[in-house]
Simulated assay, not measured.
Amino acid sequence: MKLHKESKGTIAVASILFIAVASVSIYFLEMWSLMIIVPLLIIYGLVFWFFRVPNRDIQDHVENVIAPVDGKVVMIKEVVETEFIKEASIQISIFMSPLNVHICRYPVSGNVIYKKYHPGKYLVAWHEKSSTENERTTVAVESLTKHKVVFRQIAGYVARRIVFYCNEGDQAKAGHEFGFIKFGSRMDIFLPLDTEIICKIGDKTKGGIDVIAKMRD
């Protein structure tokens, strides 16, 4: 199983803690140490599972809006995006549990025209105000269909580290990685009002694969 590059520090710390606690348990508890080691081993395995990088066949897209993350669609509504577009848009929000793959991918192909990191709070990721009050990043892409699409990584109550690798002027390719969020969070996508929405609330998405909307020239 391939592991994401963001896993190095976390796995190193988890390994040291696991070895230390297991060693102390064996020394003091002997045969009863399994009562501690087995649950720890499960948690240790989940850390590796969280940072997995699945093999996915990413296609080229022009009109399609691709799910940027693995997760569950929790919101589809008309809002006013106030940071960059500054006009009415359709917001699609996808919540990621700690068990989901947490690679963040471009939802559309085009050119990166805006990026910004915002420090903030750590409200639970499904809270509506988390989109504007939590620690977050905002990226805007001018799509191949000449639409401005904004998407936002949002930290949650558990997620405390967001990374994004894109820069203004970069070429965005739908389905390809641009960032990562550690341990549960949310992605918001803001689309033009005339976008054809294909997904619905409650849908489970597979990042880089599932088409959630279509935009026309």
Rank of each mutant, 00 (worst) to 15 (best):
H127P: 07
K214W: 06
V79Q: 09
M187G: 01
E83H: 13
A14Q: 04
K72E: 15
N64V: 10
R161T: 09
I16C: 03
N167T: 12
V65K: 01
K148M: 15
S93K: 05
V101W: 00
T205K: 02
I85K: 12
A125T: 09
K116G: 14
Y122Q: 08
C199W: 09
L191T: 03
D194A: 02
Y114P: 01
V73T: 05
Y106A: 09
T205C: 06
D70P: 00
I197L: 00
D203N: 11
K146L: 11
L193R: 08
F28H: 06
Q171T: 13
W32P: 07
Q91N: 10
V141G: 09
F164S: 11
K121V: 09
V69R: 01
V38F: 13
E196I: 08
S109L: 00
K8C: 06
I58A: 09
S93I: 03
S143P: 11
N167A: 15
G169Y: 04
C199D: 04
A155I: 10
F164N: 10
V53N: 05
G207S: 06
F48T: 00
A213Q: 02
V65W: 03
F95D: 07
V150C: 12
Y117E: 09
V101G: 02
R105M: 09
E30N: 14
D188L: 05
Q91W: 03
A22P: 01
C104N: 14
T82M: 13
E133T: 14
Y114K: 10
A140T: 14
I94R: 00
Q171A: 13
G9I: 08
